[in-house]
Design a protein around this nucleic acid. Structure first.
Lengths: 330, 330
DNA sequence: TTGTATGCGTTATCAT
DNA sequence: ATGATAACGCATACAA
């Protein structure tokens, strides 16, 4: 007698039902089994409150039913929401999620990928910033927001369309002279297309525009200086600003206040991401909303898809504009 | 030949090093082994880039090196931050985290606990709302913010002291007549002590106060009505309000604006939790800050602690006041 | 000290 | 259709 308070196993069920081990396995896996046997096994399962041990299952099948999510953190609202929806999508498919927060650290990203390669997870979903990330082709990988080569599917929102939409909205709302402000990784990634989309939108609407692009190391103060330089007579030469993220829009909004400018009366502001106060309340600002639930579903779907041929290199999901108080009219 | 691109196993290492399987196991686990053997094994491990399969390891040891975190969601900033820090604390100890988002659903909470009981996780950290949650004593459990009996440790911030601190701060800042506003679960839990602490603080400072307590089902509009009823001549009879969470403070702040009241000039506001914009920027409001990193560490520490005798039933961690623009002076 | 054999809970391949 | 048995990767008691 070794089993004390540990969970019941198939063997226990078999003994309880008076059948062979293999029969229990078949019932559990839905394989054909005689009706009378099936009933007895099912009764025994209920009686013992049996559940399969998916780790033993995984050992046999060389599957872990676990996928790793590589993400910088979970306190940034965008990452937090992505984490939530990916987790839901995985649980729905009986998969577990191993959360790997990388804090933007290139080396940690690589370590997690390597770890994952060693039979510890069945796949990886990664929002990463290491341009030299080595990912062997043996482990399925889906990237978010950054293309990592033709063999690895990338899921993103339609950043180009989002930028364009921002320009069109500002134009519709009466802006004549706008600016695009961006800070972030200098890496080639999908969100960079927001700039191109915005330019495109401005050109097609005949909107005159300026850009200020900062990289990760740069100081935020450069934006303050940029804005100050574009003041004359206490007025800003821009009547509309498109910020690359809602986070930046928040900072810019504070800076504008310091400059005695009113939002949206003096200058209208559009952000990107669709972040809400406390995760589910109002939008922080007027914004281009990323379809996070759909992106999460798509990531999981692509990762778990059997047919490896049907994996498109890039999937862009549609964005939408939402009013959030920093533009005119609701 | 079955092993193709799958990860190398101990057997491979043994063959490569020309030693027996058991010897490899000993080297991996740091058990005494002859120096020459040890070196050969370590070389082989490096050469094959071997890593133990911790699931097979777990199958043997009936350990999964996984703990489950039961939490309503990860998009609410408080939960998101808690998730982040608990994840970090676990990874530091080589434990994985199984994220179980319950969306406040009592039945889902029970399902996850039951699932976890079945040898799938080594322990559970739970922030739950099911008062009848059944958790067998076989699986270590640590509760957050709600005591679940003397055998289960509960980790929380010092909610009583936080309430008291809020009252004292409002008093220090010149308030004479204050209010406490609360909405949330009617369950007996730790955050409820904020009320008692606040009362205590008001009494000791001779502050006159009123309370408005709402339960989960109740409509927010009751707060609006409550505040309206306390208006006379366009002035609020309160000069300070303590909200049970930053989230509520945000809503109340919006309502006050609608009532043409200025914060903090007409009425000062203190929230609770220490939520920041975008997870790491400014505080949403002046607030009582919960020590989330320390709470996370404490949860993991208690859960993984060997000595089951040394588990205190309740651990309260210290809170601090932080200025966030909704009180006078910085 | 090192090697061998057994078992952890499953699944799959056999005979029956 | 059902039952016995080997194998998955690892740890360990035991034999050498």
């Amino acid at each position: 007698m070794k089993r004390e308070n540990s969970a019941p196993t198939m063997k226990d069920v078999a003994r309880e039902a008076g059948v062979a081990l293999g029969t229990v396995s078949k019932v559990v896996n839905g394989l054909p089994v005689g009706d009378s046997y099936k009933i007895r096994v099912e009764d025994a399962i209920r009686k013992l409150n049996y559940q399969v041990n998916s780790y033993a299952q995984g050992l046999k099948a060389s599957k872990t039913y676990t996928i790793a999510l590589l993400i910088p953190n979970t306190f940034d609202p965008f990452y937090a929401s992505l984490t939530y929806h990916i987790n839901i999508a995985l649980m729905k498919r009986k998969y577990r999620m191993l959360l790997c927060t990388t804090d933007f650290d290139h080396q940690q990203e690589q370590e997690y990928v390597t770890m994952a390669q060693h039979n510890k997870v069945d796949g990886i979903i990664g929002l990463t910033y290491n341009p030299e990330l080595i990912v062997e082709e043996t482990t399925p990988f889906v990237a978010i927001d950054r293309s990592m080569g033709p063999k690895i599917p990338c899921v993103a929102c339609d950043n180009f369309a989002g930028g364009q939409l921002a320009a069109e909205k500002l134009s519709d709302l009466g802006c004549k002279n706008v600016a695009f402000l961006r800070i972030g990784s200098s890496l080639v990634n999908e969100p960079n297309k927001r700039k191109a989309g915005f330019e495109n939108g401005c050109l097609s609407r005949g909107l005159s525009y300026e850009m200020k692009i900062l990289n990760d190391g740069d100081s935020y103060e450069e934006f303050e200086q940029f804005l100050s330089e574009h003041m004359s007579d206490g007025k800003l030469t821009f009547d509309g600003i498109f910020c690359v993220t809602d986070r930046l829009a928040y900072q810019i909004s504070n800076t504008l206040r310091k400059l005695q400018l009113r939002v949206p009366e003096d200058v209208q502001l559009i952000g990107f991401d669709g972040i809400r106060y406390f995760g589910d309340m109002d939008y922080h600002c007027s914004t281009i909303v990323q379809p996070i639930p759909e992106m999460a579903e798509m990531c999981v779907d692509l990762l778990l898809r059997e047919n490896t041929m049907m994996k498109p290199p890039l999937v862009c999901l549609p964005v939408a504009y939402a009013y959030g108080g920093t533009t005119l009219e609701g």
